[in-house]
Amino acid sequence: MNKHFISAFISGLVFGLGLLVSGMANPDKVLSFLDLAGAWDPSLALVMAGAIAVGLVAFAAIKGRTHSLLGEPLRLPAKKDLDLRLIMGSLGFGVGWGLAGFCPGPALVALGAGAPKAAVFVAAMLAGMAIYELLEKTRARA
């Protein structure tokens, strides 16, 4: 099997472990971070700080490269403009995140942990993504 398939699996595994260790896989803890007016739990800010500290080094290291260490082409987002889709989409995402305390990664971890409520959230999220694909196809045809 091609090496980059193995590294994709291991990256996902480590990502999931990180979500578990950090407490992000627990919606109650995420909502306690988002609840500025309540008893505020700042932990999530440190999760972001820890992740970005490591990420900064990696993304600085690949600057100027065209291929990954395994020889895969480097595929980084090329878009630069702050368009309405980005802003409205992100504003919308925050609403969904705040309603249940789940964002996509932690929901997948909670699904793997066997939580029925996470399964329902993930199913709805997939349906939402499918609706997006349908809307995009309709838009492309129009």
Partner: peptide
């Protein structure tokens, strides 16, 4: 645990871009 878990998440994202050339 927040910092350690965050660092693991960062490590996964780092490995993914360094090895697979993609955004996690």
């Amino acid at each position: 645990t927040a910092l350690a878990g965050g660092a693991l998440i960062g490590l996964a994202a780092a490995a993914f871009v360094l090895l697979n050339g993609r955004i996690a």
